[in-house]
Design a protein around this nucleic acid. Structure first.
Lengths: 146, 146
DNA sequence: TATATATACTTCTATTATAGAAGTAATATG
DNA sequence: CATATTACTTCTATAATAGAAGTATATATA
């Protein structure tokens, strides 16, 4: 039996509910770290180019865990390290994340600096891109989650 | 010739860029007002159930206009009223918005209070749902934008 | 014409969130 | 045993937010 997770939401509007969970400057970047950059550790997320502050990262990881989008385990090689990973709820954000990226590609192309080939695959075959991302996640899971 | 709009973004990561434009508690609710609720006036947006404050609404409408996601005209019937509407860039957010709603439907269903029939259409035929939303927007445009 | 009201804001203030620096406790490495 | 690494927490200055109140202009009503 799984305890029902409590979210505080402003209203029952799905847009408002989603924003109450991931609607801030940092939460979706943490998700990006795990989903697209394959990061699983605190120290690695601290070092991403957006320079998230230690307190915010800690705070967001906790909220994401409380909200059920991520989970964590001890690193098998060290007790002082933790591994964070996406739950099915977190992984399911891939569709929304991809639409964000595609919107950016269509509308603010000039601001982006991701590699051309990645962008092309994303654009021409978003489903394949999703599948590739999910395969990478699964491979990590096979290795670290028994 | 159209002036290039300047956005300040943390980095060239598409996720970070999109978050710099719409990544806060209120911006996407304003978009929702215009996209799904068919609202076009300040006063109507003030009265939505999330109870946005006047200063935040004003602030977000300005930022959205600066960022090129919405535009505004005087109300044809009254000079003291303004009509806000989505630009093509704003309308193009529909794909992302829909994925947000679908994620909510799949993962936090118990928190939502939108009508069952709307949810069913959304779920079973998201493309039709999108088309309907866009048709409504186009009808408004035909009436108010020459 | 004078007065009241509507609309789209702006201003003010208290509270909350954020960023950045520094500190801490537990573990691991040399 | 000394030093370093990791995952935080704590502190503080700055910025953002919410809510109440005020303002300017346009329109409606007596």
């Amino acid at each position: 039996m799984v305890a029902k997770i409590e979210h505080k939401t402003r209203t029952g509007c799905p847009v408002a509910c989603v924003l109450d969970i991931v609607g801030d400057h940092w939460t979706l970047l943490v998700i990006r770290n795990m989903m697209f950059l394959g990061l699983h550790e605190y120290k690695d997320m601290l070092e991403t180019e957006e320079k998230i502050s230690s307190s915010i990262l800690s705070n967001r990881l906790k909220k994401l865990e409380t909200d059920g989008l991520i989970a964590s385990i001890d690193h098998p090689e060290s007790k002082r390290r933790k591994l964070y990973y996406l739950t099915s709820m977190g992984k399911d954000l891939i569709h929304m994340m991809l639409e964000m990226v595609l919107w950016a590609n269509r509308n603010i192309d000039h601001l982006l600096t991701i590699p051309e080939d990645k962008l092309l695959l994303l654009k021409n075959d978003p489903d394949k891109f999703k599948a590739l991302v999910l395969v990478q996640i699964e491979e990590w899971e096979k290795e670290y989650l028994s």
